[in-house]
Measured scan of single mutants.
Amino acid sequence: SSGAIIYTVELKRYGGPLGITISGTEEPFDPIIISSLTKGGLAERTGAIHIGDRILAINSSSLKGKPLSEAIHLLQMAGETVTLKIKKQTD
């Protein structure tokens, strides 16, 4: 049976990049997913974020019904501590 787990990851960026690339579309209900991780970057080092994971919220702002451009804007405005709500498929 296919299921999913949902969890929250807190990234402290200390002025540096998060080390993630996200992808999606401008269709508001398409998923926003992690499309790549910078090798040795902040997100990869947590061990908790993987390519293909879906981002449900950024700093408690839900991405439900929001296009990719809004998600990118939220990441850019997120500040030093970025909290990502992640949904991972478990097959």
Rank of each mutant, 00 (worst) to 15 (best):
S1F: 09
S1R: 07
S1M: 14
S1I: 13
S2C: 09
S2M: 14
S2A: 05
S2I: 13
S2G: 04
S2D: 05
S2P: 08
S2Y: 08
S2H: 06
S2N: 06
S2R: 10
G3Q: 14
G3W: 10
G3D: 15
G3H: 13
G3L: 06
G3F: 10
G3I: 11
A4I: 15
A4Y: 14
A4E: 06
A4D: 13
A4P: 15
A4C: 15
I5Y: 15
I5H: 14
I5W: 07
I5Q: 15
I5V: 10
I5D: 10
I5L: 12
I6H: 04
I6N: 09
I6S: 11
I6A: 08
I6Y: 14
Y7L: 14
Y7A: 13
T8Q: 04
T8E: 03
T8L: 06
T8P: 04
V9G: 02
V9L: 08
V9K: 00
V9N: 02
V9I: 10
V9H: 05
V9F: 06
V9M: 05
E10C: 10
E10N: 13
E10I: 06
E10M: 08
E10G: 11
L11K: 10
L11R: 01
L11D: 08
L11M: 15
K12L: 05
K12H: 08
K12P: 06
K12F: 05
K12M: 05
R13S: 12
R13I: 07
R13A: 15
R13H: 11
Y14C: 13
Y14V: 15
Y14K: 15
G15P: 08
G15H: 09
G15Q: 14
G15D: 10
G16F: 03
G16Y: 07
G16L: 05
G16S: 12
P17H: 12
P17T: 15
P17R: 08
P17N: 13
L18C: 15
L18S: 00
L18I: 07
L18M: 09
L18H: 00
L18T: 03
G19Q: 02
G19L: 00
G19E: 05
G19R: 03
I20D: 01
I20Q: 01
I20M: 11
I20E: 11
I20H: 04
I20N: 01
I20V: 08
I20R: 02
I20T: 03
I20P: 00
T21C: 05
T21E: 10
T21F: 02
T21M: 11
T21N: 12
T21V: 10
I22L: 12
I22V: 09
I22S: 01
I22P: 00
I22H: 00
I22Q: 02
I22A: 00
I22Y: 00
S23L: 03
S23C: 04
S23H: 14
G24F: 04
G24K: 12
G24V: 04
G24L: 07
G24Q: 12
G24A: 06
G24D: 10
G24I: 07
G24C: 04
T25E: 07
T25V: 10
T25A: 11
T25R: 08
T25N: 07
T25G: 13
T25M: 08
T25Q: 07
E26M: 04
E26G: 11
E26L: 04
E26T: 08
E26N: 11
E27Y: 13
E27R: 11
E27K: 09
P28V: 08
P28G: 07
P28T: 07
P28M: 07
P28S: 10
P28Y: 05
P28W: 04
P28L: 11
P28R: 08
P28C: 08
F29A: 09
F29Q: 14
F29G: 13
F29N: 14
F29T: 12
F29V: 12
F29W: 13
F29I: 09
F29D: 13
D30F: 08
D30H: 13
D30R: 07
D30C: 14
D30M: 07
D30I: 03
P31W: 05
P31C: 15
P31Q: 13
P31D: 04
I32P: 12
I32D: 04
I32V: 05
I32M: 02
I33Q: 06
I33T: 13
I33H: 13
I33W: 15
I33S: 05
I33C: 14
I33F: 10
I33P: 00
I33V: 13
I33A: 12
I34N: 02
I34S: 00
I34T: 00
I34A: 03
I34W: 00
S35N: 10
S35C: 12
S35A: 08
S35Q: 13
S35Y: 07
S35R: 08
S35K: 09
S36Q: 15
S36Y: 13
S36R: 10
S36C: 06
S36P: 01
S36G: 12
L37M: 15
L37V: 14
L37A: 02
T38F: 06
T38L: 06
T38K: 10
T38C: 15
T38H: 11
T38I: 15
T38D: 15
K39N: 13
K39L: 07
K39H: 13
K39I: 08
K39F: 04
K39Y: 04
K39V: 06
G40W: 02
G40E: 08
G40A: 07
G40Q: 06
G40D: 12
G40I: 01
G41F: 03
G41T: 05
G41W: 02
G41S: 10
G41Y: 04
G41Q: 05
G41V: 02
L42N: 14
L42R: 14
L42A: 12
L42F: 08
L42H: 11
L42K: 05
L42M: 13
L42E: 09
L42Y: 09
A43C: 06
A43D: 05
A43N: 00
A43G: 06
A43I: 01
A43T: 05
E44R: 03
E44A: 13
E44K: 02
E44L: 04
E44T: 06
E44V: 03
E44Y: 06
E44S: 09
E44M: 06
R45H: 07
R45Y: 02
R45C: 08
R45L: 07
R45V: 05
R45I: 12
R45S: 12
R45D: 02
R45Q: 13
R45K: 11
T46F: 03
T46E: 09
T46I: 10
T46S: 14
T46A: 11
G47T: 07
G47E: 09
G47W: 01
G47K: 14
G47P: 03
G47V: 00
G47L: 02
G47Q: 14
H50R: 15
I51T: 15
G52M: 03
G52T: 03
D53Y: 00
D53Q: 00
D53E: 00
D53N: 00
D53H: 04
D53F: 00
R54H: 14
R54G: 02
R54A: 10
R54M: 13
R54L: 07
R54N: 10
I55C: 02
I55G: 02
I55H: 04
I55E: 11
I55R: 00
I55D: 02
I55Y: 00
I55Q: 00
I55V: 12
L56I: 07
L56Q: 04
L56D: 04
L56R: 02
L56W: 02
L56T: 05
L56M: 08
L56N: 02
L56A: 01
A57M: 12
A57P: 01
A57W: 01
A57S: 12
I58C: 01
I58W: 04
I58Y: 07
I58N: 02
I58V: 07
I58H: 06
I58L: 02
N59K: 00
N59F: 02
N59Y: 04
N59C: 02
S60C: 12
S60F: 09
S60K: 13
S60Y: 08
S60R: 08
S60V: 00
S60T: 13
S60E: 10
S60A: 08
S61T: 15
S61F: 13
S62Y: 05
S62F: 14
K64M: 06
K64D: 12
K64A: 14
K64Y: 10
K64V: 08
K64I: 10
K64H: 13
K64L: 10
K64F: 10
G65S: 08
G65V: 01
G65K: 07
K66H: 04
K66D: 01
K66W: 01
K66A: 08
K66S: 06
K66L: 08
P67A: 08
P67Q: 09
P67W: 03
P67R: 13
P67F: 02
P67E: 04
P67Y: 06
L68H: 03
L68Y: 08
L68Q: 02
L68D: 02
L68M: 09
L68P: 04
L68W: 00
L68T: 09
L68R: 09
L68A: 07
L68I: 13
S69R: 09
S69W: 11
S69A: 12
S69L: 04
S69Q: 07
S69P: 03
S69Y: 03
S69T: 11
E70L: 11
E70N: 11
E70Y: 08
I72T: 15
I72V: 15
Q76S: 11
Q76Y: 09
Q76F: 04
Q76P: 01
Q76M: 09
M77G: 12
M77E: 14
M77P: 01
M77H: 11
M77L: 11
A78S: 11
A78D: 06
A78C: 10
A78I: 04
A78V: 07
A78Q: 09
A78K: 06
A78N: 07
A78H: 03
A78W: 03
G79D: 08
G79P: 15
T81I: 12
T81P: 12
T81V: 04
V82A: 12
T83N: 08
L84S: 02
I86T: 09
T90I: 13
D91N: 15
D91H: 15
